[in-house]
Amino acid sequence: MIVFVRFNSSHGFPVEVDSDTSIFQLKEVVAKRQGVPADQLRVIFAGKELRNDWTVQNCDLDQQSIVHIVQRPWRKGQEMNATGGDDPRNAAGGCEREPQSLTRVDLSSSVLPGDSVGLAVILHTDSRKDSPPAGSPAGRSIYNSFYVYCKGPCQRVQPGKLRVQCSTCRQATLTLTQGPSCWDDVLIPNRMSGECQSPHCPGTSAEFFFKCGAHPTSDKETSVALHLIATNSRNITCITCTDVRSPVLVFQCNSRHVICLDCFHLYCVTRLNDRQFVHDPQLGYSLPCVAGCPNSLIKELHHFRILGEEQYNRYQQYGAEECVLQMGGVLCPRPGCGAGLLPEPDQRKVTCEGGNGLGCGFAFCRECKEAYHEGECSAVFEASGTTTQAYRVDERAAEQARWEAASKETIKKTTKPCPRCHVPVEKNGGCMHMKCPQPQCRLEWCWNCGCEWNRVCMGDHWFDV
């Protein structure tokens, strides 16, 4: 396979590697080409510095992935760790964990309700045991953590790749202090920090972006993250068709209702045909949960890209028209025109101005929308079919299609509260000796007794199943 190397943020060049090629071997190839010592090179990928003893497969490097290699003399205490030698983080029983690669970060837990604080980093599902597709590297999971809308060759929703760059020099040479644990960490600028490894760059702020994971991409090709779309790892039924499908869209209502993408497309087109989208002054033209839940309008309007190009163009047109109407304007009634106009409040005669090729020149009556006339309008008909009709959803289907309910059931079956801080902690095999993952707590306690870890627990039921 081919990976592209950008040395000291210059133009990239291809390097041929195998899945079992080590990072140090990659350094040696680059060092020979650039005429520099291999031990002064640092390989940066997806916000993480890659260790010498890791392989291309370990690092989730795919065909035509772009890695950054910078030349920086080692500072005291760094060289041993980078070589894969006596790194205290690798000691058996050590409590410190390697910062998780962005290629394996899962933010789907952050669609849980606000009262489930902490689960994004504490609760991990076991539903990723799908067998890898044919042709994928051994052991590589097909679980997708992110979804994007690819405006490039795909023109559809695709699995996405999370990447990070330095907000100062805009190069992907920043190593994160810690990985993101929720969508806010990724979507809110300057929320996460790190250290830029580019020479002479003092940058410390992280800037995240997404790429389409279905095809090789260049540095400049980015895609918009659709953070309401998630892999259906909890096997929730769709609120409309009641099938279990994946991926799904999880509405931001209190129940976190789930809808499959085909039904979401149908829901949007139906509402669009009836012009029953909601115009929100802050958000724009949007839709609420299909069950009509309060405070559930979709905030990231790129989710409506699921409509496809033709329907999305209609959505944008109707949204612009609705904006004009909300501002007190009118639409030209001549067939084939429909231009938005903003006449004076007491102006009865409205002319669709033909300047700049935008208007048709038609003069019409503001009251009856017919060709302009003197005197009273002959008839004014009330528009028919403008009443909002509820999208029919079966109550039982709505009850079963809740992301929140599956989460709470998982928590109930696989977790116990920490005796000190009461945060839910998952036990997935292993011994009875637990350690609270909350940095402010870190209590060592017994899963069996529910009390602080002691010699009695150690001698009596340390390794009970």
Rank of each mutant, 00 (worst) to 15 (best):
C289Q: 00
G94V: 12
E444L: 04
L307S: 05
R402L: 05
G354T: 12
R275T: 01
W54K: 07
R42W: 02
I23Q: 01
S378Y: 15
P73F: 05
C323D: 15
C446A: 01
N454F: 01
I259S: 03
N254H: 10
F13L: 04
A339K: 14
Q158D: 00
D274M: 06
V250Q: 04
F24M: 13
L112A: 15
P180Y: 01
C268Q: 01
L102I: 12
K412N: 13
C352Y: 02
A206T: 03
K413E: 14
N428R: 15
Q389I: 14
Y267G: 01
T103D: 14
Y315P: 00
G194P: 02
G47V: 00
L287G: 01
C154M: 00
D20R: 07
Y372D: 07
C451H: 15
N295F: 06
D106C: 06
G338E: 08
T388W: 09
P132Q: 12
W445R: 01
V67Q: 01
D346L: 09
L102H: 11
P343N: 06
T103L: 07
V117D: 15
S131E: 14
P333E: 03
T242P: 02
G336N: 11
A320R: 10
G430E: 08
P343S: 07
Q311T: 06
P343I: 08
Q440T: 12
P202Q: 10
C418H: 02
Y318P: 01
L176P: 07
K161D: 04
P216M: 07
R72K: 14
Y318T: 02
T386D: 12
V425L: 10
R442F: 07
Q311N: 06
E367P: 04
C323I: 14
L50W: 02
F24H: 10
S141E: 14
E207C: 06
P132G: 12
I236E: 02
E195Y: 10
K369C: 07
A230T: 11
Q389L: 15
P247N: 03
A31Q: 04
C154Y: 01
R271A: 14
E374P: 08
D18I: 04
R442Q: 05
N190F: 08
G213K: 07
C377W: 02
C260G: 01
N144G: 06
T414G: 09
E395K: 12
S127P: 12
S116E: 14
L331F: 04
D460H: 15
R314A: 03
C268S: 08
